[in-house]
Each structure stands twice: as structure tokens, then as C-alpha cells.
Amino acid sequence: MELDELKNKWKALDEHIKSQDNKIQHLTDQIIAGKVKSPLDTLRRHCIIAAIFVPFMLPFFFWAYDFVGLTCGESQKLLLYTLTWLFVGFTFVREVYFVFDLKGINISKATAVESLQQTIRFRNHYKWGVTIDLIIGIVFLAVAFTSMNQMFMFGGIVGGIIGSLVGIKMYRFYNRTINNLESALREWNEES
């Protein structure tokens, strides 16, 4: 196909795509009414809610340790409390960080290249934030449930396995999408 021919076909697409115009009107009304939200807005809202509620996990865990009773020595108890602070603290900081990091994606003002860079940056931060939290969470779970009786240890192992599988799947998903975006940017930069 010659390039002039391509241009003609591109213009011809206008007539075909007109059939979709009335669907935009319906979407427009829904957006104005606030009935649809962008995925980034939804993610931002989830991060804010998580940041508000995560600190309450601390008193809950401490109450649980007292209620269930710890069956470990003093050094392991100290390790358990340290990991509890670390896990809850890191999760809280991560959620707050994501709320501000999302503001760095400015679709309506950035250039195409900047917008791609902003998206890659945020996704990398998100991927590593979730991965590190998962690692801390697994270690925390392992210590927590070996500090309690066998019933909780079993629950901890199951929780750890499920969490790991979900975490690995998320990590691989984000890796794939980030690699895709980065390769487009790399190819673009190599041509300059």
C-alpha cells in the first residue's frame, strides 16, 4: 500500500467511525453525572482508604497477640513486634506515597514521551512497593505464626502461600506491561 493510498484510507475511516459518535454522547452524560471514574482515580481512592485504615492494624495485631497468647521466647517476641511495626508502617507509607505519585501523571499537559515516562515511573514504583511489602508480609507471617500455637501456624502457612502466588502473578503482570512500555520508549530514543 502506498503512503498516499494510506492517507486516503485514513480519511475514509471517518465515515465508518461516525457510527460510534452517538455512543460518545451517552458516555459524556455519564461522565458529567460522575457515574464513571477513571482507573487511576479509583486506585487513588483505594490508596487513600487503605492509608486511613492501615494504622488500625497495629492495635489489632497487639490485641491479637495478647488474646491468643505468644508461645515464643523474648527475642522472637521482640522480632515479632519489630516486624509488625515494619509491615504496618511500610504499608501505610506505601499507600500515602502512591497517592502523591499518581499526581505525577499528567495526561492533559504532558507531551506523549513525558506521559509514557510518567506512567513507566509510577508502575515501577507500584510494582516494587507491592513486592517489598509482600516480602515483609511473608516474613512477618512466618514469625507471627511460629510464635503462636499450631492452629495459627497452619493459617499462616496457607496465607503465606496464597499471598506469594498472588504477589508473583502481580509482579509478573506489572513486569510485562512495564517492559512493553520501556521497549517502546527505548526504540524511540535510539532513533533520535
Binding site: 460518545i24 458516555l27 471514574k37 477513571s38
Partner: peptide, 11 residues
């Protein structure tokens, strides 16, 4: 398309 329209509205 939905995402584009939302970004237009917000921007």
C-alpha cells in the same frame, strides 16, 4: 475511549 473522555473532562 472512556478513559480519553474522562481525561478530557478532568483536564
Amino acid at each position: 475511549r472512556q478513559e480519553v473522555l474522562i481525561n478530557v473532562w478532568q483536564g
